[in-house]
Computed example of a mutant assay.
Amino acid sequence: MSGIGVLREGPLHAAVKDLLARPGDTAEVPFGRYVIDLVRADGELVEIQTGGFSPLGPKLDALLDGHRMRIVHPVAAERRIVRVDEHGEVLSSRRSPLRGVALDVFDRLVSFPSLLAHPNLTVEVLLCREDHIRAPEAGRSRSGRRRRDPGERRLVDVLGSEVLASPVDAAALLPDVLGVGGEPFTTRELAGALGCRMLLAQRVAYCLRAMDVLADAGKRGRAPLHRRVG
């Protein structure tokens, strides 16, 4: 059963697992009908999730009440796009302008935001330097759309981490100046304060309301308002 888990993992997942492993830990451990990426010597179950969190839902439902669990999510704080040929030879490389931040985890937390209040759950965001390995540009399809190779992510270095063990930790990602004194704010104002795109700000607001960090504060025109709780 452990072999199945190893075969399915990509290079980023494998590299993060190797990086996190400590003496006494066990990798690819069967737990009933599930397989856990790492089981710590102290009993903590560690799951490395490079994509969306929704596939973890059944596993969390089955195991979280009886076990301490940690979801480790790598985010590309710095990335380099590397084009290779069919033999793996590097054709070109360039620095991507995209910069991931710890806040990006809210894109994933929308799957089960209220679970962060569970005393057994911790979410750790790894801020990574990555290479994104892709095939050469493939031109355009008959429809005129550019063909894009999603490639694979490879870990180069870990630059830092952010640990969210409770809604309080999630609330700490909000700027101090936002909602001071209970002043309500819109999602657009949240996006401006966070310096993020509107869609991410909407997901941040949704998650923090599910965690009771933010509450409904009516509307300003047609825009919903939020306020800090407590």
Rank of each mutant, 00 (worst) to 15 (best):
residue 92 S to Y: 06
residue 51 G to M: 07
residue 109 L to M: 15
residue 99 R to L: 01
residue 68 R to P: 01
residue 59 K to F: 07
residue 43 G to Y: 11
residue 105 V to H: 07
residue 110 V to N: 10
residue 58 P to D: 09
residue 46 V to D: 08
residue 76 A to C: 04
residue 74 P to V: 03
residue 63 L to W: 04
residue 57 G to H: 13
residue 108 R to D: 11
residue 83 R to T: 13
residue 84 V to S: 09
residue 93 S to G: 13
residue 107 D to P: 02
residue 103 L to D: 10
residue 48 I to C: 03
residue 73 H to Y: 06
residue 97 P to K: 01
residue 58 P to N: 08
residue 73 H to E: 00
residue 58 P to M: 05
residue 54 S to L: 09
residue 95 R to G: 13
residue 56 L to D: 08
residue 81 I to A: 08
residue 59 K to S: 08
residue 70 R to A: 05
residue 69 M to F: 05
residue 51 G to E: 13
residue 108 R to A: 09
residue 102 A to K: 03
residue 74 P to D: 09
residue 61 D to P: 02
residue 75 V to A: 10
residue 84 V to Q: 11
residue 88 G to W: 12
residue 108 R to Q: 13
residue 53 F to D: 01
residue 103 L to V: 12
residue 46 V to A: 06
residue 90 V to D: 06
residue 58 P to R: 12
residue 45 L to N: 09
residue 95 R to I: 14
residue 49 Q to G: 00
residue 63 L to G: 10
residue 98 L to R: 12
residue 51 G to R: 15
residue 53 F to G: 03
residue 49 Q to P: 01
residue 63 L to V: 05
residue 65 D to H: 12
residue 106 F to K: 06
residue 61 D to K: 09
residue 82 V to M: 12
residue 109 L to D: 05
residue 70 R to F: 00
residue 68 R to C: 00
residue 46 V to W: 09
residue 53 F to P: 03
residue 50 T to D: 01
residue 44 E to H: 03
residue 85 D to V: 05
residue 62 A to E: 14
residue 104 D to H: 14
residue 102 A to C: 10
residue 80 R to L: 03
residue 49 Q to E: 15
residue 48 I to V: 15
residue 105 V to K: 04
residue 91 L to H: 08
residue 58 P to Y: 05
residue 58 P to W: 10
residue 56 L to N: 13
residue 74 P to N: 07
residue 91 L to N: 07
residue 99 R to C: 01
residue 73 H to V: 01
residue 58 P to A: 11
residue 97 P to C: 00
residue 65 D to F: 04
residue 89 E to C: 11
residue 48 I to H: 00
residue 56 L to C: 12
residue 76 A to F: 01
residue 77 A to H: 09
residue 99 R to K: 12
residue 60 L to W: 02
residue 56 L to M: 15
residue 74 P to L: 06
residue 92 S to E: 14
residue 78 E to Y: 02
residue 59 K to A: 04
residue 80 R to G: 00
residue 57 G to I: 14
residue 88 G to P: 08
residue 45 L to K: 07
residue 107 D to N: 15
residue 105 V to G: 09
residue 88 G to Q: 11
residue 56 L to K: 04
residue 98 L to E: 13
residue 86 E to G: 13
residue 106 F to G: 11
residue 63 L to E: 05
residue 93 S to K: 13
residue 101 V to R: 15
residue 67 H to M: 01
residue 87 H to C: 12
residue 83 R to D: 03
residue 105 V to L: 12
residue 64 L to D: 06
residue 69 M to E: 02
residue 95 R to Y: 11
residue 63 L to K: 08
residue 47 E to F: 01
residue 86 E to F: 14
residue 60 L to C: 02
residue 67 H to T: 01
residue 49 Q to M: 00
residue 55 P to Q: 12
residue 74 P to G: 07
residue 81 I to V: 10
residue 100 G to M: 06
residue 88 G to Y: 11
residue 78 E to D: 09
residue 67 H to I: 01
residue 71 I to D: 00
residue 67 H to W: 03
residue 56 L to Q: 14
residue 72 V to T: 03
residue 98 L to A: 14
residue 60 L to Y: 02
residue 72 V to G: 00
